[in-house]
Structure formats: structure tokens, C-alpha cells
């Protein structure tokens, strides 16, 4: 009994170390004074100087700004398209080309990224020759590529939410005199909004840190943040990358903690409500 508990605790600690040790070391070394990433300068550390250089590094700031813009665009557009596709797949059990649509929307999830990237590159180049759009590779083509694969994820999320959707709610709205558009806006949309929001967040993160597909469709002068980091690392890791990564980790961690607290709160409120309702059941 006792040894089993010890084993469980040991496994837990090992697991946590395995997952978080790299991140912790990255954060620690971002405060290192030395130019050499792997050597800890115990005399002048900790220091914030890499954070200082980061603020003045135009290349990184530009790349971060571009990444944010692309991620926002990709997430928003893919949410609209993915919701429509998810809706069509969940609601219409039979129509011409349903299987094709289902296959096409989920293909980017299973396809190797290299192939998705390459095929998109070929498509963009061919399109430019045929109709003159998109004009060269750059932010536009990156955004289009990101929309393509993010949409697949949003479709899956929305579709699974709609599969468990009680359709009598929509019928009730229609029965009360609401036209189909009103039914969608006032009943369906608010109820699948959590799925759409999580789809948006998923799309944003996927777009934000995508490297492989972006490499294919990016043009000169349009480097996203992951591309800049990757190219910097190839010439040897510089400590300011550590500082940048630490900031990113901080942002993500804050987001997760806040959403966890919010969900806990909602859960507890819901449980209390249900208990009250059960108590009133006479």
C-alpha cells in the first residue's frame, strides 16, 4: 500500500519534471547575463538586459506584430468557414458530395504539413500566373494557408457540438414564429458559441505557432515570429530568444490560469443552482 503510493508520487514528479524542466531552464536562462546560452554567469546574473534588447529589436517586434495580425485574421475567417462547414456536415445527412466535403475539410488534420504547405505553394503560384492573384507570396498567402488548415479544426469542434444539439430547441423557436435566420441568430448561435470560441482560440494558437506550412508560403519580408526564432536559433541560440520565449510562456500561462478559474466558478455556480432547483422540486 505504502510502496504503491510512493510509486504514484514518484511517477507524478518525474512526469512533471519531464514536461516542465525544459521550460523552467529556458526561463532561468533568460535572466542569464552571459552571451553564451549554456553558461550561467553567476556574478552578474540575474539580469533583465535581454528583455531590454528585445524591446529594441525591430525584426522581432515586426515579426510578432505580423504573427498577431495573421493569427487574428486566420482565426476569425476560419471560424466563419469552419462553422458553416460543421453546420452542413452535422445537419444535412444526405447531399451530393457530402463525403467529399467531409474528407476535404478534415484532410489538413491528417495530411503531413510538408505536403499541405507544398500544395498550397503550388496553388498560389499557379493562381498568380492564371489570374494575377495573389500577387506574390507574403502576408496574404500566409493568412490564406492558415485559414485552410485552421478551418479543419474549427469544423471538427463545431460539428461535434452540433451533433449533440437538441434540435427541438430550434423547432420550438420556429413554432413560436421565428424565421430560420432568427432561429439561427437567437437560438443556435448562442448555444454553439462556446464551441465557436474554443474553435477560435484553437485556430489562433495553431496559426500563431505554425512554422512548416508558413515556410512554404511566406515571401521575402514577411517573416512570422516562429520563422524569426527558428532562423535565429539556426545561427546559435541567443539569450534574447530565451527572453522572448519567457514572455510567450507567461502570456499563455496567464490565459490558462484565468480560464481555469472562470470554468471552476461556472461549474460551482451551476452545481449550486441545480441543487437549489432539486430542493424546490415538490
Amino acid at each position: 500500500m505504502r510502496s504503491r503510493r510512493l510509486f504514484a508520487r514518484g511517477a507524478l514528479i518525474l512526469g512533471l519534471v519531464f514536461l516542465y524542466a525544459p521550460i523552467v531552464s529556458l526561463i532561468v536562462f533568460s535572466f542569464n547575463n552571459s552571451r553564451l546560452v549554456t553558461v550561467w554567469d553567476s556574478v552578474h546574473s540575474p539580469t533583465l538586459k535581454w528583455y531590454g534588447t528585445l524591446v529594441h529589436n525591430g525584426q522581432i517586434l515586426d515579426a510578432a506584430w505580423l504573427s498577431i495580425r495573421i493569427a487574428l485574421t486566420a482565426a476569425s475567417c476560419s471560424v466563419v468557414l469552419g462553422t458553416l462547414a460543421g453546420f452542413a456536415l452535422a445537419r444535412f445527412s444526405q447531399f451530393r458530395g457530402r463525403l467529399l466535403l467531409a474528407g476535404m475539410t478534415t484532410a489538413p488534420i491528417v495530411m503531413p504539413e510538408v505536403i499541405t504547405g507544398l500544395s498550397l505553394l503550388l496553388l498560389f503560384v499557379a493562381l498568380e500566373q492564371l489570374i494575377g492573384w495573389p500577387r506574390g507570396l507574403g502576408a496574404v498567402t500566409i493568412a490564406l494557408a492558415h485559414i485552410t488548415f485552421c478551418m479543419a479544426y474549427v469544423t471538427v469542434v463545431v460539428q461535434s457540438r452540433l451533433t449533440g444539439f437538441d434540435e427541438s430547441l430550434e423547432e420550438a423557436a420556429m413554432d413560436l414564429g421565428a424565421r430560420p435566420a432568427t432561429v439561427f441568430l437567437r437560438v443556435t448561435l448562442p448555444l454553439i458559441l462556446p464551441a465557436i470560441a474554443s474553435g477560435w482560440l484553437l485556430a489562433f494558437t495553431l496559426s500563431w505557432d505554425d512554422l512548416v506550412i508558413t515556410q512554404f508560403v511566406a515571401g521575402p519580408g514577411s517573416s512570422t515570429l516562429p520563422m524569426v526564432i527558428f532562423s535565429k536559433v539556426r545561427f546559435g541560440v541567443t539569450p534574447d530568444v530565451n527572453a522572448l520565449a519567457t514572455i510567450l510562456v507567461l502570456i499563455v500561462a496567464t490565459g490558462i490560469v484565468l480560464s481555469t478559474i472562470w470554468m471552476r466558478y461556472q461549474q460551482r455556480r451551476r452545481e449550486r443552482d441545480e441543487q437549489l432547483a432539486a430542493a424546490a422540486n415538490l
Binding site: S168, L169, E171, A172, A173, M174, V187
Partner: peptide, 20 residues
Amino acid sequence: IPPYERPVNMMFQSYALFPH
């Protein structure tokens, strides 16, 4: 006549109250 134009209302078995 579509459902939203009929002079009829329905009470559903599941009640179908809008949860939001």
C-alpha cells in the same frame, strides 16, 4: 405554410426551453 406562420403552438416533450 411553414411552422412559423401557423396559428399553432406546441409544447415539446423535452420542454425545449432555451437554456441561455
